[in-house]
Every structure is written in C-alpha cells, then in structure tokens.
C-alpha cells in the first residue's frame, strides 16, 4: 500500500466505549458475586431471589458485551483493518471473543455458574489492555500484511477463549473435589463451600472441562498449522523455533498431555485438571511475558 488514512477521532471514541464496557462489566460482576452469595445462602427466601439477580447479572453482562463489541469494531474501522495487530487490540478483541463464546455456550451447556469468573477475567484483561498495553492506532507493518493475520490470529483467539472457560471449570472442579475445602473449619472456607454447592457436580464439571479443552486443542492445532504456513511465506521456513513458536509448541504439548492424562490410569480427575490449569497458565505466559520480554520474530506488542 502507498498511503492509508487512519481515523484517529474514531479510535479515541473506541477507547471511550471500551472504558464504558468496563464500567458495565463491573456492575455485572458485582451482581454475579451477589447472586452466588444468594444462591449459596442457607435461607430459602434468599435462594429464591437468586434467579432474579442472575437475570439482572446477565442483562448487564450482555449490555457490556454489546458496548465492548462496538469498541472493538470502531478500533478496526479506525485502522482500516482487523483489530488485532498489537497487544492492546488482541486483548480487547480476545476478551470480547471469550464473552461471545461464553454467551453462546450457555445456550448449549449450562455453565451459568462460572459467569463471575469469566466476567472477572475479562475485566482483568481489559484493565491491563487500557493501562499497560495501550498504543495509538497504527497501520500494519509489512510482515503482518497478509490474510493469514485474519485466519491465524482469529483461531488463536478462539482457542484461548475455549481454554479460558475450561480453566474456570477446572478451578471449580478442583475446589469441589478438594478434601481441604470440604473439611476446613475456617469460616471463609465455609462460605467457599456453600458457593461451591451451587456448582454442578464434579463429574459434570470434569466433562465440561473436557469438552471445552478438546475444542480449544483442535483450534490451537489449527493455529499452529496456520502459523507454520504463514511463517513459510514470510520467513522462508515453516518452523524455526522462534520464541513464540516454542511456546505454541509447549502449550500444544501440555494440552496433548492433558488429553493423554484423561485416559491414563492414575492421571484422570484431579491431575488432569491440574494439567488443564498448567496449560492455561502457559497460554497466559505466552501472551504476556513472552510478548513483552522475550526476544523473537513475533514482536508485535507495539510497546517500547
């Protein structure tokens, strides 16, 4: 391309929308937490109110998601390209995809109880994006000018979203199955215990975690292959152990290990759930530490 017109006022408006979405997400988050406390209450009258507060929670959550979506779309329009070319953009788009996948998923499987977790995570991501990762709107550097940016990164974001929801389910599963939580006499733990009683049974949580991780692993495998095809076009080799490639490989291997564990005697259940969490930690590590501090070819954070 010879010249580009960036719409800078629109990119500022986009940021306003992202902040507005954060405000509404915060309200939704507080309602979800309140809802969990109601649902786990010992009083029947309190528990009865939980259905209503959950509706309100999802109402605010969906509203926040809509504002969030508008912010993401505006950022894309202001740059004249897909809105995921640096860490800030990847964070706002990725967290929206997490919300989107989650809202779709609750129509298929009842995973409403992890709403507070998903909501909290998205808030955390948006908070980091606006404070730590923010960069002004820029054009794509020549290395990123490829339709593979759309394919490779979209699928990576989707995979991350599925891994994220699975990790939430793993945490719930481990807490539910923990003897320590079940037997502790601490008051705070008693509250945790009551909240957990609202969650689906362990077996159900395990199955859901499995489902989400399996879709995540398939998408991640596709990300890896698409990345290799792109690397062949851009860097002359499909695999060269660049730091980002190394971590993509590590994450793939960890989740492959997770599925191996689910069919290995002595490794099913808790150990597998721990592997699911280790896998997701690697995903987060790859996105934060590797992006910011490791040297490599994938230097697209846009931060100095």
């Amino acid at each position: 391309m010879n010249s580009v017109d960036l719409n800078i006022p629109l990119s500022r408006l986009s940021l306003v929308f992202v902040f507005a979405a954060m405000a509404v997400y915060t309200i939704a988050f507080l309602i979800f937490v309140w809802n969990l406390s109601q649902a786990s209450s010992t009083k029947k009258a309190e528990r009865a109110k939980a259905t209503q507060s959950e509706k309100w929670g999802f109402g605010f959550f969906a509203t926040a998601a809509a504002i969030h979506a508008a912010g993401v779309v505006m950022r894309g329009i202001s740059a004249g390209r897909v809105p995921w070319a640096n860490m800030y953009e990847f964070s706002i788009s990725g967290s929206f995809i997490v919300v989107f996948i989650y809202l779709l998923s609750i129509r298929v499987r009842d995973i409403r109880v992890i709403a507070a977790f998903v909501n909290g995570f998205v808030l955390l991501v948006l908070g980091s994006a606006t404070t730590l990762f923010y960069v002004q709107v820029k054009t794509l550097m020549p290395a990123l000018q490829s339709y593979w940016l759309v394919i490779h990164v979209t699928v990576a974001v989707l995979a991350t979203a599925f891994f994220n929801i699975a990790a939430a389910l793993s945490v719930a599963y481990l807490l539910r199955g923990s003897d320590w939580v079940a037997n502790s006499k601490l008051k705070a733990i008693a509250i945790v215990r009551r909240v957990l009683s609202v969650f689906p049974k362990e077996q159900q949580l395990e199955r859901l975690q499995n489902r989400f991780n399996s879709i995540g692993l398939l998408l991640w495998s596709f990300t890896l292959i698409a990345g290799a095809i792109w690397a062949e076009r851009a860097w002359h080799r499909f695999w060269g152990w660049d730091t980002k490639e190394v971590w993509t490989f590590i994450i793939w291997t960890l989740y492959a290990g997770y599925f191996h564990a689910t069919t290995t005697r002595g490794w099913t259940g808790k150990r597998a759930a721990w592997l699911s969490l280790v896998g997701f930690s690697a995903v987060i590590f790859n996105f934060t530490i590797v992006n910011l501090f490791f040297k490599g070819l994938h230097v697209y954070s846009g931060l100095k």
Binding site: N2, S3, V4, D5, V137, K138
Partner: peptide
C-alpha cells in the same frame, strides 16, 4: 520503502517494502 508521513499516530511506520 514507503513510510507513513500523513497520519499523526503513525509517522514513520513502514507501509510497504
């Protein structure tokens, strides 16, 4: 080598090689 000279937030970013 084409570098952006027009958009204030983008000055000096390579547009194309």
């Amino acid at each position: 080598a084409i570098f952006d000279l027009k958009n204030p937030t983008n000055i000096g970013t390579p547009l194309d090689f």
